[in-house]
Amino acid sequence: MYRVSQEAVAGAPEALRLVSVTRVYGRGGADETAVRALDGVSLSLPSGSFTAVMGPSGSGKSTLLQCAAGLDRPTSGLVAVAGAELAGSSEAELTRLRRQRIGFVFQQFNLLPTLTVLQNVVLPLKLAGRKVNRARAVNVLTRLGLGERLRHLPAQLSGGQQQRVAIARALVTEPEVIFADEPTGALDTRSAREVLGLLAQAVRAYGRTVVMVTHDPVAASYADQVVFLADGRLAGTLREPTAEAVAERMTRLGAWDAAEEADALAASGAGV
């Protein structure tokens, strides 16, 4: 399994920075209780790294991803992607920054059913008003094993193939950071393993930074490091993770019971 050397990461520029980021939902009045989804989170991720974000249900994983990707605005704190601060940006500016510097891979693929594989992949370039480099898009799809599927519709592909298209779509804009939200949640074991390998390849072959939210310790073991959240706060970091070490840490955070940990370790033994 590919991992980025700590020496290389140490000298890499910063891809993502969060400083004292807080996100509060609700006003806390008499009829409403304020929920502090993120509570002063500070994080710095270097370019060319693969980070998994984990934590118990309600720990703030999805909120962290949404704030870091500019999909949600923090209540306070600073978020910067490749040196560009998101605070104070208008919606139009945020949209432009996301299209230029950020790629997304979601659990449900989010492919347009009436567009072919190639059309889905080049769509972000068209939306951003950028020149469509068809040869590059074909090259990316070919490297992801989809060179013979360019004219297929999403319904003609397996779940794993559709997720490959989503990864190609994220790569073709040459983003600084790719955010992946439970990217293997809808896949079988074999397809999940292939997709995780492709995300690692995005780091190795394309020099991208990947931030992946997951509940799966086996998926997290593909990352260079795992960042743990609990109650909206950072609860530790695990470098060069194994599925066993991740499962044990999640158990200590109270995320799982013993039966769930045993299932996770069994999946690890199956070689996912």
Rank of each mutant, 00 (worst) to 15 (best):
F179A: 05
Y2I: 11
A168W: 05
T142N: 13
Q108W: 12
G26T: 01
P124R: 06
T95A: 14
V272I: 11
Q161L: 02
E248F: 07
V122Y: 08
A170T: 07
L127W: 10
T189W: 01
T237N: 10
I178M: 07
Y222T: 10
A266L: 14
R36Y: 12
T184Q: 06
E260N: 06
L71F: 15
R130D: 14
L127P: 07
R134S: 12
R73N: 04
P241M: 06
A128Y: 12
D188A: 03
L111N: 08
Q119V: 03
A223S: 14
L198R: 02
L112M: 14
A186Q: 14
T173A: 13
L238G: 12
R27C: 05
I178Q: 05
G88A: 09
V121T: 15
G26P: 01
Q108M: 11
E194L: 12
A52Y: 00
G207E: 02
D31Y: 11
T209A: 03
G160Q: 04
M250W: 11
F106V: 09
A262E: 15
R249S: 12
A243Q: 06
G40D: 06
G29D: 13
R23T: 14
T22C: 11
L94R: 12
E244S: 14
A264E: 05
N139F: 11
E7Q: 13
G147Y: 04
L141S: 02
R239D: 14
G147P: 03
V79H: 00
A255C: 06
K131I: 12
Y25F: 15
N139Y: 10
D231M: 05
G145K: 03
A12I: 00
F228W: 02
A223M: 08
P183M: 10
L16A: 01
P113K: 08
V138Q: 15
R136A: 12
G160C: 01
A267V: 08
R239Q: 14
I102H: 08
T51K: 00
D181N: 10
T95L: 13
A128L: 11
M250T: 09
L196R: 06
L144I: 07
G145H: 05
T63D: 00
T142F: 01
M250L: 15
